[in-house]
């Protein structure tokens, strides 16, 4: 049961397929161009087997025709003499910036998804993570699964119990406290540094806040939270600080789960606190914005702790199929 490696995390053959079909559509690979597996693999710095699979798929859609001698011909193969172009001389797009943000190793493509699914389950309790079920779910080998779980273990996101089973959770109040203490130190400082660069993005954020109702749906809350906690701070120049902040999201996950499962949620206080921060930013008062953000983080932390308690009484939350509740 292969569930798609959705969104950004495409399989290699899909990347090849999209790259070739996109280049054809853009007129960069004219009708009659001959493509060999070796040449495409070389041009994209990929191994041959996903390239072959990608090109094969394009013969089914009519983008390519299999050539009797070798390789594939762009179009329906009606041109008498196919042209074997040097793919490095054509103005073709590169796949991605140098190291390949989109082209990632097998384990990287599922790491984020497993990390997010696990993090979203642990407010409810303790979960056993099945290697076999991850393999089946993503259609990957046990080697890939182990690589993913090892990386998560290195991050401290999961561990092993005495019987050597992979285990995650529970998210404790103390973990929320620890995370809050870090955010309270780092995030206002990051915002203060970014403050002068935010003029252009503020109006849209303020408009979103003005329109939001206290019981707005979880997706809308996500956008509002991302505006302040991701976008605003992303303008500060310290990349390592940005990387640390990105991993301090347990509180937000608890709030997200609460809004999803508890229909009567009321975000009026959060909206007011966000408005206060943005108003300071709009006035060019970076210190005021930092102080308002600190106030918001404290108030939000108190709410998150209360909400975690509510989540802790849920008996059968819906979680990813490779997670089984054990406590």
């Amino acid at each position: 049961m292969r569930k798609g490696l959705s969104g950004l995390h495409k399989a290699y053959f899909d990347i090849v397929k999209d790259w070739v079909s996109g280049s054809i559509a853009a007129g960069l690979l004219p009708d009659g161009t001959r493509l060999t597996v070796a040449a495409v693999a070389d041009r994209l710095a990929l191994s041959r087997s996903p390239v072959k699979r990608g090109l094969e798929l394009l013969t089914e859609t009519g983008h390519l025709t299999r050539d009797a001698r070798s390789g594939y011909i762009v179009g329906n193969g009606s041109l008498a003499e196919p042209d074997a172009a040097n793919l490095f001389t054509l103005p073709l797009p590169d796949l991605a910036p140098a190291t390949g943000v989109f082209v990632r190793a097998g384990w990287e493509r599922i790491l984020d998804e497993v990390a997010e699914a696990t993090a979203a389950s642990i407010p409810f309790g303790i979960f056993h993570i099945s290697e076999t079920a991850i393999g089946a779910h993503f259609g990957v080998s046990r080697t890939v699964t182990r690589e993913v779980l090892s990386r998560l273990q290195e991050r401290g996101a999961i561990g092993k119990d005495r019987a050597s089973h992979w285990i995650a959770g529970p998210l404790s109040a103390r973990m929320l406290d620890d995370e809050h203490a870090l955010r309270r130190l780092l995030e206002p400082a990051a915002l203060a540094q970014a403050a002068s660069m935010l003029r252009a993005v503020l109006p849209a954020m303020q408009e979103r806040l003005t329109k939001a109702r206290p019981n707005c749906p979880p997706d809308e809350i996500d956008l509002i939270e991302a505006d302040l906690h991701d976008t605003c701070t992303s303008y500060q120049p310290n990349r390592r600080l940005a990387a640390v902040l990105m991993h301090l999201r347990s509180g937000r996950r608890v709030n997200r789960l609460f809004a999803t499962h508890v229909v009567q949620h009321d975000e009026a206080a959060m909206l007011t606190e966000h408005r206060l921060v943005l108003d300071h930013l709009a006035l060019g008062d970076s210190e005021g914005a930092a102080a308002a953000l600190r106030h918001h983080l404290d108030a939000d932390h108190a709410r998150t702790r209360e909400r975690l308690k509510v989540l802790s009484v849920f008996t059968d939350p819906v979680v990813a199929p490779y997670l089984t509740r054990v406590g």
Binding site: G125, I126, S172
Partner: peptide, 15 residues
């Protein structure tokens, strides 16, 4: 009262 570490308490109690 439900303590702040309720989830952890339930886990250890089941054990």
């Amino acid at each position: 009262t439900f303590m702040d570490e309720h989830t952890h308490i339930v886990h250890r109690w089941r054990e």
